[in-house]
């Protein structure tokens, strides 16, 4: 780009017309996204409408089969629980990350990131070892004469395992919002008469909510499509939708039905995002400050 370009900043319109340069930089990623997500997605939608023949039969089947609806509802319930567990566990952790010194912060950040370096399968298998009836948790409980907890192949086990895998996706956005909160605002609220607890609930918490929303949406949506963890930690009564999809496609070769399930999940996610939209916009209003 010539230097006169950058200097003659004659308006947004002319800039928008000329600035194709940056877009070229995004091209490889765009191609990848279109090729790797867009095309398969398109075929999934197409197949859900066309196999074995054109029509809505796959959707009629999906909503007409009670077990599908039970699993769909369970998928949302489990995801909601996972999100809740993540919020509760991540909030104090992220706050601690903003409050400690640089060394401790590095350590806390590493603890968040290390699980990313271990494959999901390995981590889930670790949970099997911990949660199973003869596992570490239950043998400890037995040793203490506290009875036994059914964890493996239960919904609780699935929630615990998924929450652990997804926790970083909650902590990181929360931390990035929290570290931007001006703690002098809390001090100001104290001078205006707020006890530490009131100051937290009226000032700090509302200002951290954008991080909670962002993290919760990411976690919830990722949880909706979870496959490995529920398959390994869950039982038949904690099957999630992705397992059903796998069943239809790989075992029964019902590409149309599997596709319809995928599309239903996708639409449900879109609706959720649309509902969360206003919350995110509110965040922008707040973020615009000085």
């Amino acid at each position: 780009m010539s230097t006169s370009d950058t200097r003659s900043d004659s308006g947004a319109a002319s800039r928008a017309r000329r600035n194709w340069g940056p877009l070229a930089l995004a091209l490889p990623a765009l191609l990848l996204l279109v090729g790797v997500i867009g095309y398969p997605l398109f075929t999934v939608v197409l197949r859900s409408l066309s196999q074995p023949e054109w029509g809505l039969q796959n959707y009629i089947w999906f909503f007409g089969t009670p077990v599908n609806l039970v699993v769909l509802q369970r998928t949302f319930t489990i995801s909601a629980w996972v999100t809740l567990v993540c919020v509760v566990a991540a909030y104090p952790y992220a706050y601690a990350m903003t409050a400690v010194g640089p060394k401790a912060r590095l350590l806390l950040t590493l603890c968040v990131l290390i699980p990313f370096w271990v494959s999901g399968v390995v981590r889930t298998l670790a949970w099997v070892i911990l949660l199973q009836d003869s596992g570490v948790i239950n043998s400890t409980l037995r040793a203490l004469d506290l009875g036994r907890l059914r964890l493996i192949r239960t919904q609780t086990g699935v929630v615990i395992g998924m929450a652990q895998v997804l926790l970083p996706f909650m902590i990181l956005p929360l931390y990035s919002v929290m570290k931007g909160i001006d703690l002098r605002l809390v001090q100001a609220s104290r001078s205006l008469g707020a006890s530490p607890l009131r100051a937290f609930f009226t000032v700090y918490l509302p200002l951290s909510l954008p991080g909670v929303y962002a993290g919760a949406i990411i976690v919830f949506i990722l949880a909706l499509g979870f496959y490995i963890t529920p398959a390994l930690l869950g039982g038949p009564r904690s099957t999630m939708l992705s397992t059903l999809v796998q069943n239809q496609v790989l075992s029964l070769l019902q590409w149309g039905r599997g596709g319809a399930m995928g599309v239903v999940l996708l639409l449900a996610t879109f609706i959720l995002l649309a509902l969360a939209g206003p919350l995110m916009r509110q965040k922008h209003k707040q973020g615009a400050r000085s």
């Binding site: 100001a188 205006l192 008469g193 707020a194 009226t202």
Partner: peptide, 30 residues
């Protein structure tokens, strides 16, 4: 005596208005 029990008004150089509240809510806060 903790700050919130001293009943003292403070104005800061950095304003310290609550960004998530309107002007009216800010002033009504105390």
């Amino acid at each position: 005596v903790p700050a919130h029990k001293r009943n003292i008004g403070v104005v800061f150089q950095h304003y310290a208005l609550f960004p998530h509240m309107t002007v009216g809510k800010n002033v009504a806060y105390p």
